[in-house]
Simulated scan of single mutants.
Amino acid sequence: MTEKEARLLRIGVLGCGPIAQAAHFESCTKARNADLYAICDVAPDLVERMAWTHKPQRTFCDYDAMLADPDLGAVIIATSDAFHVQAAQRALEAGKHVLCEKPLGISVEEVEGLRSVVQRANRIFQVGHMKRFDAGLQAAKSFIDTEMGELLALKAWYCDSTHRYATTDAVQPLLVKSAFARKPTENPKADLRRYFMLAHGSHLVDTARFFAGDIVEVEARLNERFGAHCWFVDVAFASGVIGHLDLTVAVRMDWHEGFQIYGEHGSVVGKTYNPWYFKTSDVEIFRESDATSYRPLGADGHFYRRQVEAFSDVVLHGKQMVGASIDDGVASVRAMAAIERSVATRCPVALADVSGPV
């Protein structure tokens, strides 16, 4: 365990469901500069079980009561996607800093509305695109920013596996459910096409933006066969870089995720693992100047804990944010909505012109 610093950010986690159990509770207890101060869920049996396991200082079944606690510094929103925007707005209006799970929301209009709230609130707001805290991706980003020169093109892929649950069930903690859990009005998995885009496409889009900057236009195709969904997306970046994204759920093979980036003074190739392995991406960086490659180790692969620590450093010490901002979260939702419009119209779609739900 990392030794705790003298000054800790007191964090309350809203939602005691799977992502909180698998990632956020442990991240707060292990973070060097944060404390799992409170947990909150409408399901009292789930709160009791999680409190016994993770030992927060406070427990709540009422969100407003948690937000009214003057000792609470920040909130991690770990609810269903449909509740993200409303929960974030209430936390900001209560004067709390916010780390909100991805995707930021499920429609362009609601996330644009939240951006206005963030701008007024004068609080730190970060979106939980935890792959930005993969040391391999960070090494690639550093090379791009300092040595690669102009970028030419980017390819990235996120291909979930038909065998993912055989993998995740072996490495995740036992995920506890409750009959009292609050669920969205509509079952998110009733429309698998939309669910896969929000759950997995948000990772792929943010990774592409992390490396190559703002996306301005997409042209997408979707193939649906034997229960699988495959999106191929041609991407235009504001910088003039061209890109290709492959989102496939699910491939009949092992987890297949990674990227290739071609630039003026070198290239980067990366292989990313199932996130629940907590294993840093294998990244090979090639320098044209001396015709050599190197591979950063990235021994610390706990992306969720590193995300909490970076967020806490911004809040406590005013350090520069390295995670995804509200603008990044909005751009991700816009890109996903544009991909869906492009599939429907079979035409290129500019992100600036898109509206409505993903």
Rank of each mutant, 00 (worst) to 15 (best):
A331K: 06
L99N: 07
Q172L: 15
F196T: 04
G270R: 05
A338Q: 07
T280Y: 06
L192A: 03
R7S: 10
C16M: 06
T162S: 14
A65F: 01
S293M: 12
A238V: 00
T168K: 12
E112A: 11
D191Y: 04
F143Y: 14
K102P: 11
M336Q: 12
L99I: 03
D290K: 11
P357E: 11
N223M: 07
R306N: 15
M197H: 00
E340K: 12
D64L: 09
S178N: 11
A190C: 07
M336A: 08
R341A: 15
P18S: 14
R334E: 11
C100D: 10
S80N: 14
R132N: 04
R10G: 07
A335S: 13
R334M: 13
Y37S: 08
D64C: 05
V251E: 09
V171H: 08
M253I: 00
H256N: 14
G95F: 06
Q138P: 02
V117W: 13
H229Q: 11
H265N: 15
D145A: 12
W276V: 02
E26I: 04
I124R: 12
A87R: 07
V13S: 10
A179V: 11
A324Q: 02
Q89H: 02
C159H: 12
F286H: 14
Y37D: 09
E147C: 13
V111D: 03
A6C: 00
V251Y: 03
A82H: 14
G12P: 07
Y165W: 15
V117H: 14
D353M: 06
T345H: 14
P173M: 03
C100I: 08
D169A: 09
A87K: 04
L151S: 00
A324K: 02
A212E: 01
E288I: 07
A68Q: 14
D234G: 13
A335E: 01
V322Y: 01
F286I: 02
R49S: 02
A121H: 09
C40V: 04
E48M: 09
